[in-house]
Simulated scan of single mutants.
Amino acid sequence: MELDVDPFALDVLADPVPADTAIREAAPAVWLPAHGVWATGRHEEVSAVFRDWGTWTSTAGTGLADIRRGEGWRPPSVLLDADPPAHTAARRVMNRVLAPRALADLEARFAEVAAAVVDDAVVAREVDAAVALGERFPMTVLPDAVGLAVEGREHLLPYAALNFESMGPHNALRAEAERRAGGAREYVARQVRREALTDDGIGAAIYAFADAGDITEADAALLVRSFLSAGIDTTILALGSVVHELARRPDQWAALHADPGLARAAFEEGLRLHTPSPVIGRTATRRVVIGEAEVGADQKLLLMLGAANRDPRRWDAPDTFDLHRRAAGHTSFGAGVHNCVGQVIARMEAEALLGALARRVARLEPAGESTPRLSNWLRGFSSVPVRLVPA
């Protein structure tokens, strides 16, 4: 079935849910002539594609472009743009580097920074939560955890923006990201080197596996780069979206304030309702039939994760934020061998910040309208004005 919907049109990006709904409800898979790709927005189909890497390869890239034709702006990722067996060694290393026991020392640091960030917001009383909370906290703790020097971190957000905008079409958003990137690419190229990293961070732990022969030195650098390109903006947007929802639902905030242990549940529900990376691409290795659609070999299929996470076939009242919902099964972190390797840290960050916020703030209220962030490959808010009443 052909559908005249462009998920990357600026007006659609400003209000994406109607387009998501149209794609999801039209058929199990639809053809989008605007970009010459297939798309699926149903939870069952998206989950199945994620788990079948043999049929749906990542080696052609996870954006619109086919990186096998040299269309990528950066070297392919050894995690995102690879399938087993090439993917296996790198994934095994990251699973060990990011095992909960290996990250235990970060919990105290995350809690310390979260308390300081929240304290400053409470003193101010009115803040833009997208920046003062959602951006400030990850931009402090994640670079620290990787082992980056403090100098030059202002390049991280332009670099990440370039990464995500480049996954989409050659439009004004991508052009602006390229303009703003400036020296960000050169900065990241320097920072992923062993000698630029502290000897007690995640980056050094990755390089230790290169020393042991588990991966190459070049692959170690690419793995460090993955943290700097994929793990910051998504967490920033996810945190901002949760605060946006909680500020507008006094009963939900009261429940979290009464039980800060619900921070994890609030984060998962925010990921479901406002999927921070709402689309990802796969490419068919052979002819595949989805419903009545025949996807040809080497054709791209867009997995509309934001649509799948609001699929009424999977969720009751899917357009409603409910921190008491069991949101397990959302597609925001992927599934199968390509599930998000950084999800453990993202959850640690969310539990630290949202938990600190719940303990310190009796009432959380909107202080203005939130502003959506326009992005080819991200979803959330660029501004979330809130008022905080201390406990």
Rank of each mutant, 00 (worst) to 15 (best):
R286W: 08
A108M: 06
L256P: 04
A172E: 15
A220T: 08
P33M: 13
V122Y: 10
G203N: 07
A356Y: 08
G380Q: 06
V288W: 13
R313I: 03
N309R: 05
R109W: 03
W31E: 04
W377P: 00
V389R: 15
I345W: 01
H170W: 10
A115S: 12
A132V: 08
V30N: 07
A367S: 06
E269C: 08
H324Y: 03
H274D: 12
H338M: 08
S77M: 08
D211S: 05
A265S: 14
A308H: 12
R225V: 00
T59P: 02
L3C: 14
P28T: 15
P7Y: 09
A149P: 10
A254H: 09
D119V: 01
S77Q: 09
V295E: 01
R91K: 15
G63R: 00
E112G: 08
P169Q: 13
L80M: 14
H330P: 05
W31P: 03
V150D: 13
L302E: 05
A48M: 09
R91D: 11
L3W: 14
T235L: 11
E135T: 13
R193G: 06
E195F: 06
A352S: 14
D15I: 03
V295F: 10
G168Y: 05
R264F: 07
E268V: 03
L262D: 01
V150T: 14
E349V: 12
R136T: 14
R190M: 02
G72H: 05
V344L: 05
E2T: 15
E349T: 12
T371Y: 00
E178K: 13
A82K: 15
L157C: 01
R249W: 00
R286K: 14
P366Y: 05
D251P: 00
E2H: 14
H87S: 10
N376A: 11
T331I: 00
L323Q: 04
A48K: 13
L303Y: 07
A247C: 12
V127M: 02
V192N: 02
G61L: 08
A129N: 09
G368A: 02
E268M: 06
N95P: 01
E268A: 11
T21E: 15
M139R: 09
T21H: 13
P7R: 09
A181W: 03
G380C: 03
A230D: 04
E135N: 06
H244E: 14
A247M: 10
G183I: 00
P278H: 08
I236L: 11
R190S: 13
S370M: 07
H338W: 09
V150E: 15
R272Q: 08
L302A: 10
D251S: 05
D105I: 03
A230C: 00
L228D: 00
E107M: 04
A124C: 14
L103N: 14
S375L: 11
V113P: 02
A114W: 04
V117A: 07
V17Y: 10
R24H: 08
A160W: 01
L357T: 09
R310F: 07
E186H: 14
V188L: 12
D83N: 13
T234N: 05
P33K: 15
R359C: 00
R174E: 11
V344Y: 09
I206L: 07
N376M: 12
V127A: 02
A266T: 07
D120F: 00
I67R: 12
V131H: 08
R194Q: 00
R101P: 03
D200A: 15
P138R: 13
A82D: 05
A189S: 10
L106I: 14
H87V: 11
L357M: 12
A247L: 11
V361E: 06
G368M: 07
